[in-house]
Amino acid sequence: MDLLLRGVSHRYGDTQVLADIDLAVGEGEIVCIIGPSGCGKSTLLRFIGGLERPDAGEVLLAGEPPAGSLNPLTYVFQDFALLPWRTVEGNVSLVLEDHGLSAARRREIIQDVLERTGLSDFKGALPRQLSGGMKQRVAIARALSVRPAVMLMDEPLSALDSQTRELLMDDLVGLWQRERFTACYVTHNLAEAVRLGHKIVVLSRRPGKIREIVEIDRDLADRQQADAKLEAVQRDLWHLLRDEARAADRELADDTV
């Protein structure tokens, strides 16, 4: 299933946050959206997931979602958003309970998805017992359990320390190679974008406009660390963003929406 954005614009009060965004996300593709803070990239993701409506423009889905998809557009949040009173199993179960599945079928899905994400040994654990990285793995397992057409990932690794982040990036690459999922991946971390994105969309600062779309055609599995070409891409991206990042940094908090 493809995702299509046409002329999406939005303002909060007097502030124009997004202007004229046109974007296509193809099936099996990870599109990273980067930009300085306050450029509206999280807002854009909320439009794509249908949690908010843009003032102008439209978000369209092309084609049918894959068979058995319970929730075609599925988020992975920066703060994990796990229910602290439910176990790992229970948190995955939560998103399956409203779909009229039999208890046996639910158990089957949960077992399968926990195996795929290497969480089987932790199914009885409560969120407070898990490290940040494990929590995000649970959130990813939960997202996978509903067979999404597009995963909407809102800075999923930003709350983790750098070592855990490396581990999870490896996990995501491995997962993509097995499942070929489609994803919109919002981040402010250039290394993540370069590592995971097939396409990198660079947004400008307020109003958020698409400044450039960088395509990296190297297979995800081949993107080793210390790859000269990827480092060059990352340097270019930084060059694009640096001035705006500095401006964003010096802004007073009240002005941001």
């Binding site: 997931g49 949690l51 319970l70 929730n71 557009l73 599925t74 988020y75 949040f77 703060d79 958003a81 229910l83 939560l94 998103v95 309970e97 409203d98 939960r142 509903v146 909407l152």
Partner: peptide
């Protein structure tokens, strides 16, 4: 509220 947003994003019913 982020938990509520999560619930909505997974299409949970209001009552759920």
């Amino acid at each position: 509220r982020s938990l509520v947003r999560m619930g909505q994003s997974f299409g949970l019913s209001w009552w759920s």
